[in-house]
Simulated assay, not measured.
Amino acid sequence: MFASVSRLNEPKSQREAYRLVVTYTAVSVAVSAGVTYLFALSNNWPVGNALIPGVGIPLLVAPWMTWTTSSYALRLHNMRGELERLARTDPLSGALNRRGLKEYADKAFADRRRAGGFSAIVMDVDKFKSVNDTYGHSAGDTVIARVAEITRHIAGENCVVGRLGGDEMVAFFTGRSLEETLITAERIRGAIEHMIFIHEDRALRVTASIGVAAADADDESAEAILKRADQFLYAAKTEGRNRVRAAA
């Protein structure tokens, strides 16, 4: 019960904190004035003289106390939000991690009909092991971070990008058909192919293979779509890499 009350009064922005200060100050002054007025009447005190401290003290104290507690609560809210974000984010790429991907995919899949479609791409950097072996693991980290950045930039709105591990990246799309997702996947592949990655003053190039799948009537979960996209990724790599594959 107390936790729910605390959350109810927890400001989520600076503006809400200011609003709480005004609200609680007004309430404090009104309550104090009412109590002081009744107390003065019952004791035959001059009401005007009694109201000066009865109103003045809460008018001075309430804003300070409310602002102090509101600021603390706002910091806690921001810290909680940051911790929740970090728990769902891959630190290297800035993309969602497995947990974040699953949470998003489950919700998006359930809402796919209203959203107008749900699709996914699964992507690997071709011969990524040779990048690590030739240039070092820090170069591989640079490639992963830049590939995630390129994917986010091209994918645009109504899309989330995640990293499953290693060099395997995933993007989920809502409101796009298979054909539209294929076009986006091809743009991502082309951008990676033509990108020059710079690491410690050394230039390197990589390519990527991508599998694409979209939800159909038989799918029971987002995992089924992801599995199908992964199968098309395998087909792209088998056929020579640096290509996009999906259902014909």
Rank of each mutant, 00 (worst) to 15 (best):
Gly81Pro: 03
Glu82Gln: 14
Glu82Lys: 15
Glu84Leu: 15
Arg85Gln: 06
Arg85Asp: 06
Arg85Tyr: 11
Leu86Asn: 09
Leu86Trp: 05
Ala87Cys: 15
Arg88Trp: 02
Thr89Leu: 14
Asp90Ile: 06
Pro91Glu: 01
Pro91Ile: 12
Pro91Cys: 08
Pro91Thr: 06
Leu92Ile: 08
Leu92Trp: 00
Leu92Ser: 01
Ser93Gly: 13
Ser93Ala: 15
Gly94Pro: 01
Gly94Cys: 04
Ala95Tyr: 09
Ala95Met: 11
Leu96Thr: 09
Leu96Phe: 07
Leu96Asp: 03
Asn97Val: 12
Asn97Ser: 14
Asn97Phe: 14
Arg98Ala: 07
Arg98Asp: 03
Arg98Pro: 08
Arg98Glu: 04
Arg99Thr: 08
Arg99Glu: 04
Gly100Ile: 06
Leu101Lys: 03
Lys102Ala: 15
Lys102Gln: 15
Glu103Trp: 03
Glu103Val: 02
Glu103Ala: 11
Tyr104Val: 14
Tyr104Gln: 13
Ala105Lys: 00
Lys107Phe: 11
Ala110Val: 03
Ala110His: 03
Arg112Asp: 01
Arg112Leu: 12
Arg114Ser: 14
Ala115Met: 10
Gly116Tyr: 07
Gly116Asp: 08
Gly117Pro: 09
Gly117Glu: 07
Gly117His: 03
Ser119Thr: 05
Ser119Gly: 14
Ser119Met: 00
Ala120Leu: 10
Ala120Trp: 03
Ala120Glu: 02
Ile121Glu: 02
Val122Cys: 13
Val122Asp: 00
Met123Val: 03
Met123Tyr: 09
Asp124Tyr: 07
Asp124Gln: 07
Val125His: 08
Asp126Trp: 05
Lys127Asp: 15
Lys127Leu: 15
Phe128Cys: 09
Lys129Glu: 00
Lys129Ala: 08
Ser130Phe: 10
Val131Asn: 12
Asp133Asn: 10
Thr134Ile: 06
Thr134Ala: 09
Tyr135Phe: 15
Gly136Lys: 06
Gly136Ile: 04
Gly136Pro: 10
His137Lys: 13
His137Thr: 12
Ala139Gly: 04
Ala139Pro: 01
Ala139Cys: 09
Ala139His: 02
Gly140Ile: 04
Asp141Leu: 14
Thr142Ile: 10
Thr142Val: 15
Val143Lys: 00
Ile144Thr: 04
Ile144Gln: 03
Ala145Thr: 00
Ala145Phe: 04
Arg146Gly: 05
Val147His: 03
Val147Thr: 06
Ala148Lys: 05
Ala148Glu: 00
Ala148Met: 08
Ile150Leu: 13
Arg152Trp: 04
Arg152Ser: 12
His153Cys: 07
His153Leu: 12
Ile154Trp: 01
Ala155Pro: 02
Ala155Cys: 02
Ala155Phe: 09
Ala155Glu: 01
Gly156Trp: 06
Gly156Ala: 03
Glu157His: 11
Asn158Ala: 10
Asn158Asp: 05
Cys159Pro: 00
Val161Glu: 05
Val161Gly: 02
Gly162Phe: 02
Gly162Pro: 05
Arg163Lys: 12
Leu164Tyr: 11
Leu164Asp: 09
Gly165Tyr: 06
Gly165Val: 07
Gly165Cys: 05
Gly165Asn: 08
Gly165Leu: 15
Gly165Phe: 08
Asp167Gln: 10
Asp167Gly: 11
Met169Trp: 01
Met169Glu: 00
Phe173Leu: 12
Phe173Asn: 02
Thr174Ser: 13
Arg176Trp: 00
Arg176Ser: 07
Ser177Val: 07
Ser177Ile: 02
